[in-house]
Amino acid sequence: MYVRGIRGATTVERNEEPHILAATAELLEAIVVENGVTPEEIGSVFVTVTPDLDAAFPAAAIRNMAGWELVPLMCSVEIPVKGALPMCIRLMVLANTMKAQNEIVHVYLNEAKKLRPDLVKG
């Protein structure tokens, strides 16, 4: 068994709680589906947001998902790099899995597809 990092990112159009929570849940659900993992297999989730997103803690969306109540979560703010993609939520999901590194599916949604076009599926 290995601990693998599964990356993901998405963007929102507005700095409003419902948008941040919905986008976070959508991203995590996509990561779970694409990688076939369950909350029991997750060691932790690290969540970052760009400094322009301060209307909600994205981890609250994860905490409210069925089965995720005991998964350790941590939120932080991305470093404010000039020219960085704005309104962005990023996840680093640490999962226990037998998958090889090249079998992990990283998920990029909305404008965040620009971050890693090499990893975006068709």
Rank of each mutant, 00 (worst) to 15 (best):
M1E: 10
V3G: 05
V3A: 11
I6Q: 03
A9R: 01
V12W: 06
E13P: 00
N15L: 02
E16H: 09
E16T: 11
E17K: 04
P18Q: 12
A22K: 14
A22Y: 07
A22M: 08
A22D: 14
A23R: 05
E26V: 05
L27D: 08
I31E: 12
V32Y: 03
V33S: 11
E34D: 14
G36V: 04
G36R: 11
V37H: 08
P39L: 06
E40P: 00
E40R: 12
I42P: 00
G43M: 10
S44C: 14
F46E: 14
V47L: 14
V47Y: 03
V49E: 02
V49L: 05
V49I: 12
T50N: 05
P51W: 03
P51F: 05
L53F: 02
F57W: 13
P58S: 14
A59I: 14
A61N: 05
R63T: 13
M65F: 07
M65A: 10
G67R: 11
E69V: 13
E69Y: 02
E69A: 12
L70G: 00
V71R: 07
V71E: 09
V71T: 10
P72A: 15
L73C: 13
L73T: 13
L73D: 09
M74Y: 08
C75S: 14
S76N: 11
V77L: 11
E78A: 15
I79L: 13
K82C: 08
G83N: 11
G83E: 06
A84F: 05
P86S: 11
I89T: 10
R90M: 10
R90E: 14
R90Y: 02
M92L: 15
A95E: 02
A95R: 06
N96L: 14
T97K: 00
T97N: 01
M98S: 08
M98R: 08
K99Y: 02
K99E: 05
A100F: 03
Q101Y: 01
N102G: 01
N102D: 08
I104D: 02
V105T: 09
H106E: 06
L109G: 00
L109P: 00
N110R: 15
A112D: 02
V120E: 06
K121I: 06
K121Q: 07
